[in-house]
Simulated assay, not measured.
Amino acid sequence: MMLVRKNSSLLVGFLSGTSKISILLSPSNTLTSLRLLTSKADDPSPKTPFIVKYLIDSLGLSSPEADKCSKSLTHIKSPSNPDSVLEFFRKNGFTDADIKRILCSHSRVLCAKVDSTLKPKFEVMRDLGFSDTQITKLITANPLTLNYLSYCNLRPRIEFFNTFLDSYDDIVKAISKDKSLLASSLEKTIKPNIAFLKECQFSFERIVSLLIRGRGVIGRAPKSLKSIVKRVNELGVPHGSGMFFLTFRCLCGVSVDMFDAKMKLLASLGFSQSELLSAILKQPLILCLSAKNLCEKVDFLVKEAGCELSYVSRYPTMVGLSMTKRLIPRNYVMKLIMERGLLKKKIGFFYFVSISERNFLNKYIFSFQQRMPELPNIYRSASAGKFLY
């Protein structure tokens, strides 16, 4: 009986709205709860960081570009300093496209102080004789050079480079492509490297070429440079020859481990040791090809073009030719004109793929067009990856 009364009182309390459950389920509280849930669901995405929005609004960077540039700028909360940097660059002849390129490469320049950092660097270059156009080209091409532009660092280098390079335009080209020419020690690295290359019978012209176009060569550690020359010597390339220079340039971009791996790969494809050396001495650029590229081309030359490995090693230039633009379409045409009996004698595959496009069209496309009118279209289609027969 007591249990029934107790349950009855609980039920009355529940129905009368005095219980905790009834309070929670009251119309006002239910509406409040719904509002809270709705407000959370409708909350906007996290607010865009100031610097990201600044980069988008001030220079028109895309969101991904701004996100990438902002990683080292998250401490910037005010437009004051960035505005002064952008104004400085614009006053010095940089377009917004130039500034955008600079920031995408070296975004921390937005943190620089204009009066104490940027102005002195520009004044140094002007005092040394660089024109505003040359300064703009240099900094836009290689923004990291800003870190090394000081009078005591730049002046002796300009004086030294002037003994090899004819003009400030050439110096700008050199430094633009290779910041190590400013970052590496002049006395401990650059001068010793050039002296060593002279000992290896590199001509004046080739040293100039390395300065202007040899990115990361003259400014690398002397020990590394000597190691590369040692590897070229081991291949048996004579000093002073054009092939020594070409092999040296190729090996500058290939580490010892990469070189050993490439030699093992070529051996695994069936080349003998003598064939390997012959191929590399004639075309060292094959060392710069990726493993996949190298395997695909050798496989094509042997299986599709019918070349022996010994033939490939005699004419390794073929391995450096484009598969889609040269090897495949010309091989396709060669087989067709041979099947039609248009060739009076067999032509070596190397000659067929190595002659210039103009000569190839005249000798093997247009000359046979009368007997095979569809040939130009066949070759054009094959060059586009479409084979009509």
Rank of each mutant, 00 (worst) to 15 (best):
N92Q: 02
V124N: 12
D67M: 14
T117V: 11
F352R: 12
K40S: 14
T38E: 15
S278M: 14
L37P: 03
N147A: 14
A195C: 10
V217P: 11
R371M: 10
T38M: 12
R108M: 14
R126M: 10
V333M: 13
D42I: 15
L110Q: 04
V302Y: 07
S184N: 03
G242N: 15
K303M: 13
L15S: 07
L86Q: 01
K191E: 06
P373W: 06
F248W: 06
N81A: 10
K262C: 00
R206Y: 10
R5G: 02
K230A: 12
K6Y: 07
S58T: 14
P192V: 06
S224D: 06
S209D: 14
K264I: 00
G216T: 05
L342I: 06
F204A: 08
R215F: 00
L149K: 09
N147G: 06
K198N: 05
N233Y: 09
F360A: 08
Q273M: 09
R326G: 02
L285D: 13
S84C: 06
N377C: 08
L55K: 08
P222I: 00
L118W: 08
R108K: 14
C200S: 09
S22V: 04
A141K: 12
I21N: 02
L287K: 04
G385L: 05
K68C: 01
L154G: 07
L186G: 12
F122W: 11
L10R: 10
V298K: 11
R215E: 09
L287F: 12
R126E: 15
S322G: 03
L361D: 09
S383N: 12
M243G: 00
S354L: 08
F360R: 09
R231F: 05
Y379K: 07
L61H: 05
L210T: 01
E65T: 05
I218M: 03
I194T: 03
T74V: 07
I171H: 08
